[in-house]
Each structure stands twice: as structure tokens, then as C-alpha cells.
């Protein structure tokens, strides 16, 4: 049985976020690119909680770097629940979504993503991903 909670590209949770979610940066003067995705489930009556301590531990979205030292570093990415929060968000830091997330469009979590390249190296980097901690759905 698979988790029904996913990342979506719109608040109505009609379309899954593109895989991979692409950001474009232009050197030598890159400018931040922001995108908005949503985390939720269209199933009815579902809840997810952190498996480590359900209802207590935060559900966190982390920036995972599968190739530390090459490609794009996690610190090139900021996450926030609001657009205005991106300015003050800590680069590379995970984003807490709460101790539980309920299904339904009204309960979907907005996740603002800002990417600003720091490498200055032209190329396509696919080493980063957004990943939640282990969550259990009930």
C-alpha cells in the first residue's frame, strides 16, 4: 500500500509536480528562481505523521544532496511556507510542515522553493531532491 501524499504543482492537487522539478540559473549573474509546489493528498480521511514519533515529531521536507561535493549543494536551495519567508529562510535547512498533515485540498501545505546557484559551473545538476522524513499514513 503506497503513501497517497505527494508533491503537486497546484493548490487544487490536480497535477503532480513535474519530475524532476527544474530550475534555470544563468551565470555569471544568477538570479533567484522561485517555484511553488504543494504537499498533500487527494484521498479522503488520511493523515500522515512522522514515523519516528507520530504526532510529536515534525514532518520535515529536507533538501537531500545525493552527491555532496559535486553538482549543486543543498545550500543553493531555500524552503519556506510563505513567499515572504524565502528571504529569511536558512539555505539548505529543512522545512517543518507540522506534526501531522491531513488529506484534502484545504489541508495541502504550500512549499515555496528558491534556487540560487552558487557553483558558477555551467551544467545540469540532478543531485538534489526534496525528501520528507519517513512518514506513516493512516
Amino acid at each position: 500500500m503506497a503513501i497517497t501524499f505527494k508533491f503537486y504543482s497546484d493548490a487544487a492537487l490536480t497535477t503532480l509536480a513535474s519530475v524532476p522539478l527544474t530550475f534555470s540559473q544563468t551565470e555569471p549573474t544568477p538570479t533567484p528562481e522561485d517555484k511553488l509546489i504543494y504537499f498533500g493528498s487527494v484521498a479522503s480521511g488520511k493523515t500522515i505523521e512522522a514515523t519516528s514519533d507520530p504526532g510529536v515529531d515534525q514532518i520535515a521536507v529536507s533538501i537531500v544532496d545525493s552527491a555532496s561535493g559535486s553538482g549543486s549543494p543543498a545550500t543553493d536551495v531555500k524552503l519556506s511556507l510563505t513567499l515572504g519567508g524565502l528571504a529569511t529562510a536558512t539555505a539548505g535547512a529543512p522545512l517543518n510542515l507540522g506534526t501531522q498533515v491531513l488529506s484534502g485540498t484545504a489541508n495541502a501545505k504550500s512549499i515555496y522553493i528558491r534556487v540560487l546557484d552558487s557553483t558558477g559551473v555551467v551544467g545540469t545538476n540532478t543531485d538534489l531532491s526534496l525528501q520528507t522524513n519517513n512518514v506513516t499514513e493512516s
Binding site: M1, A2, I3, F5, K6, F7, A17, V19, P20, L21, T22, F23, S24, Q25, T26, E27, P28, T29, P30, I37, F39, T51, V64, G71, S72, D76, V77, I113, V115, D117, T119, G120, V121, V122, G123, T124, N125, T126, L128, S129, L130, Q131, T132, N133, N134, V135, T136, E137, S138
Partner: peptide, 22 residues
């Protein structure tokens, strides 16, 4: 016994870094 699924939900990212000189 109820079996609840658990997993990490993952969204791969891709960063295309271009040279404006291109």
C-alpha cells in the same frame, strides 16, 4: 492488524545552470 504505509516522499530537483555568454 492494520498495516499503515510509511515512506519518504521524494521530489527530484534539476538545476540547469547556463552561461549567459551562450
Amino acid at each position: 492488524i492494520s498495516v499503515s504505509p510509511s515512506a519518504n516522499v521524494v521530489l527530484p530537483l534539476q538545476v540547469d545552470i547556463s552561461s549567459s555568454a551562450a
